[in-house]
Design a protein around this nucleic acid. Structure first.
Lengths: 217, 217
DNA sequence: ACAAAAGTGTTAGTGGTACACCCATGC
DNA sequence: GCATGGGTGTACCACTAACACTTTTGT
């Protein structure tokens, strides 16, 4: 029935985004085996029998990156010949977003690190990161996906700052606040951030943990 | 190295959209084998060794549907357990759009037909159609993908009518024309459609055959 | 002459953008 | 008291949405 040789291999690779010191980063792992030994690549693995690609992606993130909670969605399936020198590897890739609080302390023991987007990665993984970045940027415009990158409570300035970094723009402070309060997505937690040598800021959180459809710009 | 049994099978299924008598339809094929014998399903097939999923999708459309030219893009990879009673089938699905001129005469010989979107299909293929429809509708808002569904030359009323059908809305004629002429995407072919008992209409085509990014509504 | 769709402008309202100053705190 | 970011309102411009009549053809 199938006209396939048995050596088609299914793998998963995950682009896990998190903000780190004011920069959008991805989790990468330093390989110890060939091919691309000592180079950094995206976390990934072989899909096991009886496991879906989503199961596999979640397992890999838990095992390799000690990830507790994240938003995750399927990105794209890469299968161009030659993308892996070992042979015919099809990778069902996922995009995930989280906050560093959800990452186990980034121990260099398992070679897992947050790296900037311009870092050179092995295999075709820079291409996968590029694809994920586009997806993320698109979703920022019409969903509340930013909530998955933010800490539990945040100030309006932090929220604005995240958009400015992720979309590489500048936004007028008053217009931003007007827009966001009109959307009615946030609630005032009652908490304030003080201790800084400036006026204390109100802390907000999203009313819902769901990712909702909105229109921004 | 891989922890996979050799019976993971990779397939492709394609949602090929075309307008047919004022309705958005998909190409389906009547199966003659079990499972789902005598039911309709999306065109698809097993990915051959050395072939990418895109190659496979194009081959299937040529062989089974006599398709000459179409727009095609990867949609999503479906791999939930139980989606195929024969076992672990992973399907890398594609969405394609074309005009019926590009389809070889729809001979019932190979059981290939344009069917309305509400037709019941075997496997999880209704779910795949639903996913493709969402993708298509989204793309109508921010790309010129509609050009891939239109005939070579068309009137402004036809263009508007396509949008109304695909997005299930009504649009004001004057506002539509104002918007579209402002986008400056069309050229007047110089031809007119006459012979109907009404005022003849100018025929247009898109300046570019590329799918461009625009903003509509 | 009549039916049927093609073609064409103006107005009101809404939403987006630009812009500057006072406030509360830590040191 | 000074430096730092927090917090707030208004005016203009551009785009959208609503709306009706004349034109050209075939029969």
């Amino acid at each position: 029935m199938p006209i396939q040789k048995p050596d088609i291999i299914l793998t998963t690779d995950i682009v896990l985004f998190a903000m780190y010191y004011g920069e959008l980063c991805v989790i990468t792992i330093k390989r110890d085996k060939e091919p691309f030994a000592k180079q950094r690549t995206l976390p990934g693995g072989f899909i096991r029998y009886g496991e879906t690609s989503m199961d596999c992606a979640i397992r890999v993130l838990k095992d390799k990156c000690s990830l507790q909670d994240a938003y995750i969605e399927q990105l794209y399936t890469f299968d161009s010949p030659g993308r892996d020198p070992r042979g015919n590897m099809t990778s069902i890739t996922y995009m995930a977003t989280t906050h560093i609080d959800q990452l186990g302390i980034l121990n260099n023991l398992n070679n897992c690190q947050l790296t900037p987007l311009y870092a050179l990665l092995g295999f075709d993984h820079n291409q996968i990161v590029e694809y994920a970045l586009q997806r993320l940027r698109n979703k920022l415009h019409y969903t509340t996906i930013i909530s998955t990158l933010l800490p539990a409570e945040f100030t309006l300035s932090e929220l604005q700052n995240y958009y400015e970094i992720l979309l590489n723009t500048t936004i007028d402070k008053r217009n931003f606040r007007k827009k966001f309060t009109a959307l009615d997505l946030l609630i005032d937690t009652g908490n304030i951030r003080k201790g800084l040598k400036q006026r204390p800021a109100k802390l907000y959180k999203f009313k819902s943990t769901d990712i909702e459809e909105i229109t921004l710009w």
